[in-house]
Nucleic acid binder design. Sequence first.
RNA 1: GCCGGAGUGGCGGAAUGGCAGACGCGACGGAUUCAAAAUCCGUUGCCCGCAAGGGCGUGUGGGUUCAAGUCCCACCUCCGGCACCA
Length: 965
Amino acid sequence: MQWAEQSESRRHRSRCRRRCRLPTGHPRMPRYQPARIEPKWQAWWDAHGTFATPRLPPPGAAKAYLLDMFPYPSGDGLHVGHPEGYTATDIVARFERMRGTAVMHPMGFDAFGLPAEEHAIRTGTPPRESTERNIATFRRQLKMLGFSYDWGRELATTDPEYVRWTQWIFLVLFDTWFDPERQQGRPIAELPIPPAITAAGEEAVARYRDEHRLAYQSEAPVNWCPALGTVLANEEVIGGVSERGGHPVVRIPLRQWMLRITAYADRLDRELDGLGWPESIKKLQRDWIGRSTGAEVDFFVPPAGADEPSAFEAWKRQRAETGYPATPAADVLRIYTTRPDTLYGVTCMVVAPEHPLLDRLTTPDQREAITAYCEAASRKSDLDRTDLAREKTGVFTGSHVIHPLTGAAVPVWVADYVLASYGTGAIMSVPAHDDRDFEFATTFGLEITTVIEPLDGNPVEGLFTGRGRAIASGPYTGLETAGFIERVAADLEAAGLGRPAVNYKLRDWLFSRQRFWGEPFPILHEVDDQDRPTGVVRPVAEAELPVPLPPLTDFKPGDTPDPPLSRAGHEWLFIERDGRRYRRETNTMPQWAGSCWYYLRFLDPGNTERFLDPEVEHAWMPVDLYVGGAEHAVLHLLYARFWHKVLHDRGHVSHPEPFGRLVNQGMILGEMEFTGYRAAGGGWISAEQRTEADTPVRLPAEQVEKQGEHFVLRDMPAIRVESRAYKMSKSRGNVVNPDEVVREFGADSLRLYEMFMGPLEATKPWSTTGVGGVRTFLDRCWRLVLDERADDLVLAPQVVDEPASDEQLRELHRMIDKVTRDIEALSFNTAIARMMEFVNFCTPLPRRPQALLEPFVTVLAPFAPHLAEELWEVLGKPAPVSLAPWPTVDEKWLRDETVEIPVQVQGKLRGRVVVPADADAAALQAAATTDPRIAELLTGRTIAKVVAVPGRMINFVLAKSEPQS
RNA sequence: GCCGGAGUGGCGGAAUGGCAGACGCGACGGAUUCAAAAUCCGUUGCCCGCAAGGGCGUGUGGGUUCAAGUCCCACCUCCGGCACCA
């Protein structure tokens, strides 16, 4: 394995050396040397401002906003996955520019983030320093690839001016409440205050407002690891201990900033409809939002010692009068269900361990068990609690509630498979028709009552979760699921016992982090003379933004969940305004904040008056094409849409959605690998028989061959070998470095290769010989125009200034037509294939008319811009080809005079005939039947039918005949 | 378990229901060269055949159609995502 890798890379290196070095003895021989021409043209574009974008599109011009997901500038530098999407948008940007479209094509850096902070903790270097260093590397690498960004618009989310407006948007969220009736965010000043609140005084009004803001504070349980001194994400907690170090983790409530994204759940779901996004991504978002419809139902909690039937009847009478209350009082257990048609199958209730009513429902003899159970549950992370493989656990509370329709007593249990954060934190358990309830009931030997049977009438033993027809359901017996749900929900509502309800899996967005390297919140907490918070919160005035990060030297987390910013000096931490003393908010925003609106700031990056000029916004938005990895299918794209909608509601942007068309580039895997397995004894073992004990060994391709379905060892065909490509990773050692590829093959080759690998959206393995293949193509382009044997850059002797032939023009215009359509469809691999065919066509020509080469170079320009500029110059055309007009296709060259038509007999290809392009069905048939082979096949047979598609094919269908003996 | 996506030569991949394998890699042969590299030209799905030609071929099994890689049904495998949301 070692050996194979070494020999391979040695081969690459030696090939590179041959290619890149000037040929000895002919120092001026003008070979294609990307290392020379690429920096030259990058500097030229820079100096001439070739890609600078005006503030507004010129009057009358179409606009195109072509956006890449901006990178996090990691210390590892650019990965070959980055240029894949970047090249795609760059080709479109360059193409659109050449067509006269006003193009917005910016780039920046998503520069807040954990790695920089961890680096800072390790080394003591301020995160800003390492971040700036990494940005410099990324910028150099992006420029090296010749992307046509307007670098004048570059921004980093960490720029103080950018942070200023991120904080400003937070204040917009803070100043907004969601009006459910209008389904719209509105200024907090317009929030109607109930008279009772007004009467209670100014403080009550302030509290009421705070409770309705889109940015609000709440006590949320978090994973706190005392040993590590930090709060951990759910994914970082395994089995109740920290993934790193195995330290205990406790769930503690902590004051957190939340964003009320759930208010927009419905719009975020519905407004996906019109977007030009992949259906799979829309579905991911819909699933994440997780809208479900059903009903809420109240189960009566009988007061201790009361006569239950009469208390229940009294409660029902009261409910019939007052109706269903918006918030449940302590006399009911409220549940949410998507299947109210199974109400008659309820055999038990289950509440989450955190349910507020649990304490009241617990009887003295069960208290000890319940307390122990809840404590154990509180120590588990969400991840442990939702581990499906785990057996159901739970404890009986000792008490019961009354079923609102049947009046039956239903026992109440507590179990952690019920989540406090969804619905009402309590469920009705219907074991016969829900698999989780079934499992729970089976574990604890609870009753199972069947109330639904399948529509086909065959009764089902045990669990049936499908829709069907109700049985043993009182007045609803015989109804089908949909009708039952509709009717029972209406009946419950009329009786004040329940109502139709909608629920979302989406939770409000926990927006604060106990980290240093993020945007400080522009929020002040009032403190008393002992520095204790009074609970009054005040936003920092807009004019005082940005709130900068304090200078710190120690970024380490502390012993308490207190954020690093709380260790800032007093001069940062405390501030006086209007005679009151305030302490700054010390949490910071998560990394998502900056990426929620960068696409807006690109349009107006230098604006010091506002976050974005409305005139500019109106002219460029929405984004016409957004390309990036599918890993952002949910979070980034959902968060950005949410912010955008709030900004829209508040009148700051003119479109409800930011990204019109979205495309996900596929992942680039490492090179294909063959893996054999050695058993403990040293002998080979076939891949399908291997066990954990066998050692994987990477094999060179020469030792492997394909036999039937599988790859086997060439020398031992009984031994199967695995063949696949893996995700690039440092630990696997299969990471391809763009710097090295550019050094060996050139930036144009890297760009072209990544586009030629396959469809943009497909996952595809890297192949270094494949890069060599496109490099060969570029070499051929070079030689098509230039004389490699001359001493200077001069045209090849075959290049002539004479008119192109009809055949050549036909070839040229077809190529232009295909490439144009393929760019529009983002089908770059086939566009490149077509250009290759064109070069293959031109190479053997003894005389190559300039009229053929010049349009070709313009078409090549979006793909291999540096080479195209150089060829353009040698052809004597004024630079830059990057802004030359895209060649127009002359339709007349797309039409053929004659076409070759396949002739089928009984659906099988039996010959071809050449006919005029406009030959109709009759002419086709006449031509086909004169072909001797076809005529012979038709002799003595009856033609039952002739299917002739003019310009396409002809098929003779024969009548059935007796088999000849 | 659920939801996506994909299965086509040795490999990456092309193919509005109408000539399967464009283009590239690799391999093989030739020209050039003292030799090699580079370059240029050619061959390359499998099987039978000297050839002309024929047969078979797009994960598997069915179906629709004059015609299926493409449409429909069932299944298998791989990749990715989600995962007790009542």
